[in-house]
Design a protein around this nucleic acid. Structure first.
Lengths: 300, 300
DNA sequence: GCGGCGCGATACCGCAACGGTATGACGCGA
DNA sequence: TCGCGTCATACCGTTGCGGTATCGCGCCGC
């Protein structure tokens, strides 16, 4: 199966409509119809059920959509990382991504400590909105990421745990709720005049709702100070708190685990060094030994 | 990048020789040369250094080889699993792979318990030589696997731990060493007249060495009983031990962790059910929550 | 120093496959 | 029953892929 066929299939599956998919792909409808039919013949299974209202996936089609998306991301990651290997003109380099404003102390320490290593390479830090780090790691726009469980999906990555902490509500200092000593999640998310902010989806659009549209945490804190929003975040964000802000622990909020994550194949020397440094500074011993792969034993 | 180009690149990279790679791919040398040159132009980087003795990889080429292999396996996995989805003729089915003879009690319990679930699907069990389970899971020949750390490479898979145990040496009952109460790894692997067996590599060939060539554990135990071999394996293999065999604990051997592993995207209902059953029977609570992906929080 | 050898690159050709335009088949609602 | 929206089919031009023949170029041996 060629990646072009996979791209075509995914477009049709997502649109449930050959015409719209063709438009999205910048081609005419008939060749796309034929390409899908050819793919079905080659695989030996019907992927779609044709109806006069469009195309719906069969169970085989659902399998191919799930697995195909991951496979296509892997191919694109391979291509992107290859291109980046030489973009640095002989000088190796690593792209690290993290939520804007998150774990800032930890990251500063990590980058300083890594830069002091003898074999350190350049680290390009890409800050992006919450939820965008995993996809960037999957499709090769980044080589290593700082993620936060349970918010980020770490499945398929190798990880080292760095930190565990509780969460707090940050709100305007003059708000009446700021005087309580503790809150529940239900209470924190339902303060009527302080909506929680909304974050962009992967395509850059925003979900509907009452809160303001934001892209990073400095914007949030500004809005909170102006009395226009409140936000629940890990305790470590206290370091960003200045005058005009109040902090209230949220007793039953999920504990947040900060991890450093990397794609399992990509054991470039830069990534390995960063992970080693992070593990030395914060880590428990690895819970998933990464280099066990080549070892072969008698087995059980 | 098309998968055909990737296959060409990998062949040339592995052979370091366009002619041999072309032969392996069943094509002539010139079109392969051109395809590689075209790929380099499209990526915008030299992937090979041409010499009068052949082709050697640049650093960009090494990146593409590492990442490309994984990407190609992912594409092949998508295709295989799609094909298998319908091969079961509407009836969902799951392929589980494990080392022949390993964790047999655990597997029997697991399969029985799963079959008793209300939504259970057919489980096809594929037993294969040690070390072959991971690759089968990666390229789609299997959907879920029983693996053993530290022998198997679990990077890139989601896993649940099922069991932890020590290792023992199994040897002929009449052998003098069988009278000691404990051994070290160094002692166990250097008994001169009892060589450790050799297992097939992924391509089916065997490494050089003194031991017999084997494919599964029943063969081993037969040979041990005949006084022709000895083997170090996890304690649970004691259940296979009959007359004529002796068991000696190996004190400093690595502890073996049995895990159930599955590819992160492939959360088909059959795999999910098997994992749930395994987790209920043996599991600690998940250390890597698998379904956290869609959850989106305010982040830190 | 020169010819032969082994390597990848280039030139040229034929064909398969891809994409575009025009049109058909079919179900559904007005 | 007509019109619309959907996907499929027919036909055509072009692209690009692979095959054969040949070149260019280091290297080694005589």
């Amino acid at each position: 199966m060629e990646t072009r066929e996979l791209r075509y299939f995914i477009a049709v599956a997502e649109e449930s409509h050959v015409g719209r998919a063709a438009q999205r792909l910048g081609m005419a409808q008939p060749p796309l119809s034929r390409a899908i039919a050819r793919l079905e013949r080659r695989i030996g299974a019907h992927l779609f059920i044709r109806s006069p209202r469009g195309m719906t996936l069969t169970s085989a089609g659902q399998t191919l959509l799930r697995e195909g998306r991951a496979a296509l991301a892997a191919v694109e990651a391979a291509e992107r990382r290859t291109r980046r290997t030489i973009a640095a003109a002989g000088r190796a380099s690593v792209v690290l991504t993290a939520k804007a404003g998150a774990s800032s102390e930890l990251m500063a320490e990590l980058l300083d400590a890594y830069a002091a290593e003898p074999d350190a390479v350049d680290v390009e830090v890409v800050l992006s909105p919450p939820g965008h780090q995993g996809p960037m790691l999957r499709d090769g726009r980044a080589d290593v990421a700082i993620l936060h469980q349970p918010f980020d999906d770490i499945s398929g990555f190798d990880v080292d745990r760095l930190n565990v902490e509780g969460q707090v509500l940050i709100l305007p200092a003059d708000h009446p709720v700021s005087r309580v000593t503790s809150l529940t999640v239900a209470e924190a998310t339902s303060i009527p005049d302080l909506p929680l902010p909304r974050w962009p989806r992967l395509d850059g659009t925003y979900p509907d709702g009452p809160g303001p549209e934001l892209r990073d945490l400095t914007q949030v804190l500004q809005l909170v100070r102006l009395g226009r929003a409140a936000i629940v975040m890990p305790e470590s964000a206290r370091v960003n708190v200045r005058d005009g802000l109040a902090v209230v622990p949220v007793s039953d909020a999920a504990r947040v685990t900060t991890v450093i994550a990397w794609p399992p194949q990509s054991v470039s020397s830069g990534v390995a060094g960063l992970v080693r440094t992070a593990s030395r500074l914060y880590g428990a011993p690895h819970d998933r030994p990464t280099a066990a792969g080549t070892e072969r034993g008698p087995g059980t």
